[in-house]
Amino acid sequence: MKPFRLEVELKTPVVLGSRPLRLEGLLWHCLYLNYGCPDTAREKLHDYLQFNGRFFHASSCAFFVRKELHIAEDFLKGNAWNIDPKEVIKKPSRAAPIKEVIARDRSTVGAMRQEDLHEDLIAPFGKRKPYKKLELLGGKYRIRMNQWKAYWAESLVFHGVGNGGAIASLMEFYLASIGVNASIGFGTIGRVRAMPERKDYSIVDPNRDLARPIPLDSDYQLRNPEKLLIEDALLMPPFRGEQGEPCYLPERIRTIYDDTSALDGA
Rank of each mutant, 00 (worst) to 15 (best):
M195A: 08
W148H: 15
L10M: 05
R104S: 12
K91V: 13
P225M: 13
A194S: 14
Y248M: 06
I122Q: 00
A96N: 04
P215R: 01
A166R: 03
R252C: 06
T260V: 08
E251W: 04
G179D: 02
H46F: 15
W152Q: 01
N34E: 13
K149I: 06
F239I: 02
Y257P: 02
L249W: 02
S155D: 01
L170R: 00
A72I: 00
L31E: 02
E172V: 05
G78L: 10
R19W: 07
D264P: 01
H70W: 02
R198T: 03
S202P: 09
C61Y: 02
G265H: 03
T260R: 14
F63A: 11
I83H: 11
A211M: 02
E245L: 15
P213C: 12
G265D: 11
I122E: 00
V157R: 03
D232N: 13
A62I: 05
S169A: 15
L156E: 00
A176S: 15
F158P: 05
R212D: 03
S218N: 10
H57W: 04
E24G: 00
D200F: 03
L33E: 08
S183E: 06
E73H: 13
L69M: 06
R240C: 09
P206W: 05
C61S: 14
Y35P: 04
R128L: 14
F56C: 05
L235M: 07
E242N: 10
E73R: 12
D219A: 13
I122A: 01
E245A: 10
R208A: 10
L21G: 03
E251D: 13
A150T: 08
S169L: 07
W148V: 09
A103D: 09
L222I: 07
G190Y: 11
D205Y: 08
F64A: 06
N224P: 03
D47S: 14
S155G: 06
I214N: 04
A153D: 04
A41N: 06
V109C: 06
P250G: 05
L134T: 13
L136A: 04
S177Y: 02
A168K: 00
V15N: 00
D47R: 11
K140F: 15
L6I: 03
I143Q: 15
E9N: 07
G139I: 05
F186S: 07
L156V: 02
Y131I: 12
G244N: 14
A72N: 01
G162E: 10
P237R: 05
G165D: 14
K44M: 14
K132G: 15
D209P: 01
Q50V: 09
A168S: 07
F173V: 12
K227P: 00
Q50D: 11
G241F: 09
M1D: 12
R66P: 05
R128W: 01
G160L: 01
E242Y: 10
W28T: 08
L222Y: 01
A96S: 03
L49V: 10
A62D: 09
I214C: 07
S202Q: 08
V109L: 14
K44Q: 11
T12R: 03
C247L: 05
K2I: 12
I167L: 04
G25V: 08
R104K: 12
